[in-house]
């Protein structure tokens, strides 16, 4: 079954942490470097997120994402190193492409910040089953309807892409050009997209009927097939994160 979820099943402590606590961690890890603009704070946050990724044993799965980020950061290094307005101290290179210390420093700061944000997000996304997160949110008062939509995105979208592929194949077998120049592709796009949109709309209406008769809009108390799970260290994690946040705000105000 194809899905959009990046979840990697592993037996690690991080995987067993309450999804909501992981969201709180992600928020904190992104907020702290914003509150404390020093490079040390960003670097520390980045290190912690990276070690947590390692502890969850999902480093291999995060590498493609980091590779992509690295590619983008390379251009940042070039542009900042050469053209950063504050550039004063030339280091190496030939005119007009001379790397400057200030620009490289700036690029380094951006790189650490970006890596930190990406690592914090990956920690949440790679170690949390979307369904678990949604269930926890609904148990805490999120509307079950919204919960359903969030849950279904991970399956309905890939299904729609399947439909698109089927229709594409069908059109192609009827002689529709879908390869070649941009113009050819654009012309091919319209007859393709109309049936896709139509079938999606019809499917959406039919599915709405089926959900309706299975009580999606029932107003009473709902129940769950799964027993409520207990997650470890929830109180400690929340306390710790709150402490870190308060400490950085106090530091910022005093410092």
């Amino acid at each position: 079954m194809k899905t959009f979820s990046l979840y990697v099943p592993r037996d690690s402590l991080i995987h067993r942490i309450n999804p909501i606590d992981k969201i709180l961690y992600t928020i904190t890890a992104i907020a702290v470097p914003l509150i404390l603009p020093s490079m040390a704070a960003s670097f520390l946050c980045m290190l912690i997120s990276l070690s947590l990724l390692a502890a969850a044993r999902v480093v291999r799965q995060s590498l493609p994402v980091f590779a992509f980020v690295f590619l983008i950061l390379c251009t940042v290094v070039l542009i900042q190193g050469w053209f950063y307005p504050g550039n004063q101290t030339p280091l190496f290179g030939v005119e007009p492409f001379v790397f400057h210390a200030e620009g490289l420093m700036k690029a380094c700061r951006i790189g650490i910040r970006v890596t930190n944000v990406v690592a914090a997000f990956l920690l949440l996304v790679l170690t949390t089953k979307p369904a678990d997160l949604v269930e926890e949110l609904v148990r805490r008062g999120l509307s079950p309807r919204i919960g359903y939509v969030l849950d279904s995105i991970f399956q309905i979208l890939p299904q729609m892409m399947n439909t698109t592929r089927t229709i594409l194949d069908a059109q192609r077998s009827r002689g529709l050009e879908t390869e070649g120049s941009l113009w050819v592709r654009v012309k091919a796009f319209l007859p393709l997209i109309v049936p896709v949109v139509m079938s999606s709309l019809i499917h959406a209406k039919e599915r709405a009927l089926a959900l309706e008769v299975r009580g999606l809009h029932f107003e009473g108390q709902r129940t769950w097939l799964r027993e409520k799970r207990t997650y470890p260290y929830s109180r400690e994690i929340r306390g710790g994160l709150l402490l870190v946040l308060t400490a950085s705000i106090v530091w910022r105000i005093l410092g």
Partner: peptide, 18 residues
Amino acid sequence: TGSKWTVYEEVAFGLENL
């Protein structure tokens, strides 16, 4: 429904809602 990962959970959908 497209929100469940097994047949068993799928059948539970309406029961959970109600």
